[in-house]
Design a protein around this nucleic acid. Structure first.
Lengths: 139, 139
DNA sequence: AAATAAATTGCAACATTGTTGCTATTATAA
DNA sequence: TTATAATAGCAACAATGTTGCAATTTATTT
């Protein structure tokens, strides 16, 4: 996996402490994290507006993607290239929202079947939010 | 289709003008409408808190269901019994969010395929948000 | 190494949605 | 018609999202 500072560099971002940490965190957790969560984690390191702008900037550049969780809160996760090939690109995301711990994980391994839409409907993006209990919270 | 006043009656709600109108509206449009949309439509008839409570109460009773649209705004739509039988209940919803007009329609006719989750993940609810262009906005 | 330019941050401020408490009002039953 | 229980309206607050602007910091150039 490419190192955070290098990614920032390549995208023309400055390598500030907070940006590196946010990016490293996103790489490590492999979850869709919300701005409020980052606020708690980095509360002494950055203002919430800064985090908001960092996330927006990262999304703009396409290194993370944004989804709405089941509570209507924006969450951001690294785009996982593992399952995208040149010929088979899939932006279709399955997001699992755990009702116990509140975590949201990208289920990149889960294939979204082709959805047949009614006539004259065209699809541009797709987000499948699943609620339930995650492996960690399973009794 | 059952008339709005009768539905309210059966559920123990009072038949106030605004409740009847909200319910009739939901029945008519066959879309997932947001509280802000209702505020605009009934701005002189009810306070936004009233609309909020009406929607919450309806949802509580199970005559409407609530979903988060792609913007993180709650939307409510009539539960369509057409496709629910006693033996085959499906709460799995496909919601189409039109990027042009902003409307959100419940695609009851679209079947959500069975999603195979990783080990130790259990599913309780599911919402498939699709973004694209709806039939009305198709050029 | 200092100066400059450009990106980034922090703060203030505001909009919107969601939510609760309390009081006033209104629909329905007695 | 009155009593009572449900409903509505208002005030208020929290959380998230968002923008403008001034201050700061990083990176580049001299």
């Amino acid at each position: 996996m490419k190192k955070a500072p290098q990614i920032l560099d390549e995208l023309g971002f400055r390598k500030t402490e907070i940006r590196i940490k946010v990016l490293e965190h996103l790489q490590k957790v492999e979850k869709a994290v919300s701005q409020p969560e980052l606020e708690k984690k980095f509360n002494n390191l950055a203002d919430r507006v800064t985090l908001y702008r960092i996330l927006s900037a990262f999304e703009e550049k396409g290194i993370i993607h944004k989804i709405m969780d089941v509570h209507g809160v924006a969450r951001y996760a690294m785009c996982n290239e593992k399952h995208c090939t040149e010929h088979e690109h899939h932006d279709e995301h399955v997001h699992f929202n755990c009702t116990e711990c509140g975590d949201v994980v990208c289920l990149d391994t889960v294939k979204v079947p082709i959805i047949k839409l009614p006539k004259d409907f065209s699809l541009s993006r797709l987000n499948l939010n699943i609620e339930g209990t995650c492996d960690n919270c399973q009794k």
